[in-house]
């Protein structure tokens, strides 16, 4: 890997983020005809039973405050400048909360839940998928392919409802919702962490169960191809141990495409698992995004999407840098 490649790849990352962020800026402004500020003020007025007299003036004032009264190109310029400073502005629906704070509070919950679930699902799924396709596996292991396929076909929110019903409602083993017990002091204590883990098990289970199926299916396909390769046959003819052939000749080669998918999957983590989080009332990004969509809170939606764009751009870039280490046939020396 050389500097020339790194510079080109980082530039590509910046262009991708700029292009995606611009699309994200213009699309919501292309004439939905809705005015989130007016709607929010209308709601407040209605729930407070007040007369709607001063609302026009308030809408004007807020629009001026958010810069929505300026021409589009000026808004776009400000948006770009803010983005570079990572300033996501104020929430439209929860003013004066800042979008950065809303996302910042929810992010650790989502990352903690999702990264761990995705990694566990990846590890188990990849191994099971590989074993289910390996000619040397016992018959019952190869038969695992069918339940794995079934699991990958059931969406995680449905699995979520199933585990919620059985483990949460019927057996009462785990709490039904939330990220921690109400009234628990959110301070770093052992009790608090145990409580948090206890709350995260059901949503994690829903995600892991589906992820295991997903990863197993991809891995199984790759392993079927790999197990027919000449180098596997020669390794066997050379009297290598079955375990060595499986791990270092089979799994190692079949896994290469899985890494690409894992990278994208980890990047998507920052957007949360909207439906799973909503089902479990989990205080993560998914829930924030869900509420923002309900309230037409454009700045929050924008913020979540922007972070997602950056995460995907960043992860694909890191993957590109890592590939030569994973597969010696890929190199960035020249021309590529």
């Amino acid at each position: 890997m050389n500097w020339n490649y790194i510079v080109r790849r980082v530039s590509l990352f910046l262009v991708v983020v700029w292009a995606a962020a611009s699309v994200n800026f213009f699309v919501p402004r292309l004439g939905t005809g809705r005015d989130p500020i007016r709607e929010k003020l209308g709601q407040l007025a209605a729930s407070g039973g007040l007369r709607q007299d001063g609302i026009e003036a308030m809408v004007k004032a807020y629009q001026a405050k958010f810069g929505l009264d300026r021409p589009l190109y000026e808004q776009y310029w400000n948006f770009l400048a803010d983005t570079v400073r990572l300033d996501l502005g104020y929430s439209l629906a929860n003013y004066p909360a800042r979008v950065g704070d809303l996302i910042g509070n929810a992010m650790p919950w989502t990352i903690g839940l999702m990264v761990i679930s995705v990694l566990i699902g990846f590890a188990i799924g990849t191994l099971m998928g590989a074993l289910s396709a390996w000619p040397g596996s016992p018959r019952w292991v190869r038969g695992m392919a069918v339940p794995l396929m079934t699991m990958s076909a059931i969406p995680p929110y449905l699995l979520g409802l199933i585990v919620l019903y059985i483990l949460g409602l019927k057996l009462k083993l785990f709490p039904l919702s939330g990220g921690y017990s109400p009234g628990m002091l959110a301070i770093a204590s052992v009790d608090y962490y145990i409580d948090v883990v206890h709350h995260s098990i059901l949503p994690a289970l829903a995600i892991v169960l589906q992820a295991v199926g997903f990863w197993a299916l991809g891995m199984r396909g790759m392993m079927v191809t790999t197990s027919g390769e000449d180098y596997i046959a020669l390794a066997e003819a050379n009297g290598l141990r079955n375990r060595t052939i499986f791990l270092r000749f089979g799994l190692r080669n079949a896994m290469l495409p899985q890494f690409t998918a894992l990278g994208l999957s980890l990047a998507n983590v920052v957007a949360g698992q909207v439906i799973v989080e909503v089902i479990f009332a989990y205080p993560g990004i998914g829930t924030v995004l869900f509420q923002a969509i309900q309230a037409s809170d454009y700045t929050v939606i924008n913020g979540v999407v922007l972070i997602l764009i950056m995460a995907i751009g960043l992860v694909t870039m890191i993957m590109d840098f890592l590939y030569p280490l994973l597969d010696p046939r890929i190199s960035h020396r020249s021309g590529t």
């Binding site: 390769e229 000449d230 180098y231 046959a233 020669l234 390794a235 066997e236 003819a237 050379n238 009297g239 270092r248 000749f249 190692r252 080669n253 597969d327 010696p328 046939r329």
Partner: peptide, 21 residues
């Protein structure tokens, strides 16, 4: 144990007979 130590094999398709990684 017998493979390679007593009976060794030179493969047909050497193009693809070595582990690429």
């Amino acid at each position: 144990e017998n493979r390679l130590r007593r009976v060794a094999m030179v493969p047909q398709g050497a193009m693809n007979s070595l582990n690429p990684v």
